[in-house]
Computed example of a mutant assay.
Amino acid sequence: MNTINQSTAEELITRLGEDVKRLRLDQNISQLELAKQAGISRKALVNLETGVGATLNTLVRALRVLGREAWLATLAPQVSVSPIDLMKLGHRRQRASGDRTSTAPIAPRKPKAT
């Protein structure tokens, strides 16, 4: 089995769908029942569980019904350094660095005389 860092996006989405399906079955809830409680279509739930074309909205709604909202907190953990501490550290990057090559336009080459 691949670790998360070695998995493709498709593999991670499939694994997430399998986890949602396992939770649903562990709670003995049918697809139709979960879909109704979550306010989504059964087809949207099938897509989520199979990892095919699911939306974040579908995932959030299903997790809420299954009592797993805490999973969402792990997607964006709280920042452990306060903004004031960051200011004390000095300069803070405002944007990612670009290509290190010159940004001056390159003159077109003149054809060689033959």
Score class of each variant (00 low, 15 high):
residue 51 G to D: 06
residue 41 S to I: 02
residue 26 D to V: 07
residue 41 S to D: 13
residue 40 I to L: 04
residue 69 E to A: 15
residue 3 T to P: 04
residue 50 T to D: 12
residue 19 D to F: 10
residue 27 Q to L: 12
residue 98 G to A: 06
residue 45 L to C: 04
residue 47 N to S: 08
residue 74 T to G: 01
residue 97 S to W: 06
residue 90 G to T: 09
residue 105 P to E: 13
residue 38 A to Q: 03
residue 12 L to I: 09
residue 78 Q to K: 11
residue 24 R to C: 05
residue 48 L to Q: 00
residue 69 E to R: 11
residue 79 V to C: 11
residue 84 I to Q: 13
residue 90 G to V: 08
residue 49 E to S: 03
residue 113 A to S: 14
residue 67 G to L: 05
residue 16 L to S: 07
residue 11 E to L: 07
residue 11 E to R: 04
residue 39 G to E: 03
residue 15 R to A: 15
residue 100 R to S: 14
residue 68 R to A: 13
residue 38 A to K: 03
residue 84 I to G: 06
residue 29 I to E: 05
residue 75 L to V: 11
residue 32 L to R: 10
residue 108 P to A: 11
residue 65 V to W: 02
residue 57 N to M: 06
residue 41 S to N: 10
residue 38 A to W: 05
residue 100 R to H: 14
residue 11 E to Y: 10
residue 49 E to G: 02
residue 113 A to R: 14
residue 108 P to Y: 06
residue 57 N to K: 09
residue 11 E to K: 07
residue 79 V to G: 12
residue 58 T to F: 10
residue 69 E to I: 07
residue 35 A to C: 07
residue 107 A to W: 07
residue 95 R to S: 10
residue 106 I to D: 14
residue 73 A to C: 01
residue 92 R to S: 08
residue 14 T to P: 00
residue 53 G to H: 02
residue 55 T to N: 05
residue 73 A to L: 12
